[in-house]
Computed example of a mutant assay.
Amino acid sequence: MKRLILLLAGLFFALTASAHKPSDSYLSLSVKDSAITGQWDIALRDLDFAIGLDANGDAEITWGEVRAKHSEIAAYAMSRLHVSAQGKDCPIQVTEHLVDDHTDGAYAVMRFKAECPAPISVLQAQYNLFFDIDPQHKGLLRLDYQGQSSTAIFSPDKATQEFKLSEVSRFKQFVDYAREGVWHIWIGFDHILFLLALLLPAVVFRQDKKWQAVSAFKPAFWSVLKIVTAFTLAHSITLTLATLGVISLPSRWVESTIAASVVIAALNNIYPLFRERRWVMAFLFGLIHGFGFASVLTDLGLPQGALILALVGFNLGVEGGQLAIVAAFLPVAFALRTSWFYRRLILIGGSVVIAILAAIWFIERAFDMKFL
């Protein structure tokens, strides 16, 4: 029992620490003849961890502190980005420093230029920012050439990439966005916990104020299918509308409501309100989760020539990642449904842990506070 409590506590703090958006930077390159102009947005929190920006240690990074570190920021970042054309280096020169706000906080913005020895037909880019201190960091690239945009994602296993400027691979763009959709749902702990909170009662039913195990797999399967279908339909609607710019909601409101939805879904397992209509909850709150997915997709950068392709790829990736979670969960839950361990510890105890964790996320997001 002590080991189990320690395991749950470790999971609790790990999820709390990972509740926020993972580390990304946003790199844009525009190519014309032999010249490259670019902009690189890097999170101040990441730079503070890497080189230290908070000079007075008050946990607040000011413009003055960032300005004092301009040369150090440029040296650190540009030593981790190399561009070349046809195998010949294109030296980079920083031209301007700015600060901008993204959905997850303030970013240092560097504008730069590079001149290559000859007109560019094949561009090579090597990206190694933060990979030595954060293997989950990703660099999100948008490349513009003659009115066409393409995108790429740098990661430790794809740190060097090559781009033939006369070719834009639609299939590669689709695969990249699908992969990013899978990755986002797997690291989006608030989305996962919302879904799990709804699925936990799928293998049991409420009778005489107690949870009883279902007698067959079929009713559990149909319960899960209704929940997953409702959640998928709802977040697909708002993901599409938000990505196309039809509807826009404040990021803090969206993220706070997502956290609140997790709290409500978890508490419903302790004090049932929706009972067998959990699919209704999945649909209603799924509409809000769609806006959360859209903010991630927007941050990735959308190729204007393949907007629908990127949207469909990302959404299918989200669904694929979601189905993988459900496929892993349902057989195990069904096998354990008759045990005290499942009905008391996993269903009730797990719901309590989820509710507490999501309540912390809600307070952090709604009131811009940091507990852990």
Rank of each mutant, 00 (worst) to 15 (best):
L140E: 12
R277M: 00
A85H: 02
K172T: 15
D48I: 07
F329S: 01
L143F: 03
G350T: 06
L309Y: 03
Q212F: 01
S150V: 01
A230R: 06
S248C: 02
R206Q: 11
T160I: 09
C90M: 10
G10S: 04
V262H: 00
L8E: 03
I192G: 01
A74V: 02
L225K: 04
I185D: 01
L233I: 13
A327V: 15
F217V: 13
R275A: 14
L287R: 11
V228P: 01
G147T: 00
L357S: 12
I227W: 02
L241R: 07
L98F: 12
Y76F: 12
Q212S: 10
S149T: 12
A220Q: 08
G321Q: 04
N315E: 07
L123N: 05
T95W: 11
D48S: 10
V263L: 04
E255Q: 09
G301F: 07
G87H: 03
G105A: 09
Q322F: 00
A43N: 13
A55Q: 05
P250Y: 07
W222Y: 10
R365A: 12
Q86F: 04
F283V: 04
G292R: 03
S166A: 12
A118S: 15
L316K: 10
A50V: 07
D48T: 08
L165M: 09
N56E: 12
I51E: 13
R67T: 14
I348A: 15
F314N: 08
K2N: 11
K88A: 15
A77E: 12
P156V: 14
G147P: 03
K172L: 11
L53R: 02
A114F: 07
T37D: 14
F231N: 06
F285G: 14
T160M: 05
A74G: 10
L284D: 00
L267M: 08
F341K: 09
V214S: 10
A178M: 15
Q173C: 11
V66I: 15
I227H: 01
W340V: 04
V228C: 01
L284A: 14
N268M: 03
W211Y: 05
F205N: 02
F130T: 03
I288T: 14
A59R: 14
F341G: 06
F13L: 13
F205I: 00
S150T: 12
L98G: 14
Q322I: 11
P250N: 07
S71I: 00
T103S: 13
F283E: 03
P201H: 06
A14P: 00
G105F: 07
F49P: 02
L311N: 04
E60R: 04
T238K: 13
Q173E: 15
A75D: 12
D24F: 15
A43P: 15
V353R: 01
I288A: 08
G52Q: 09
A294G: 06
A68G: 10
I354A: 14
F130M: 08
D89N: 02
I356A: 11
A306N: 09
A14D: 05
Y145W: 07
R344K: 15
H184I: 09
D24W: 08
D144T: 01
L81R: 01
L309I: 14
L193D: 07
D48Q: 10
L123W: 06
P156A: 12
K88P: 04
L287H: 10
W186L: 14
L27T: 05
F274W: 06
H70C: 01
V254W: 00
L123E: 10
E276S: 12
K226D: 00
Y145V: 00
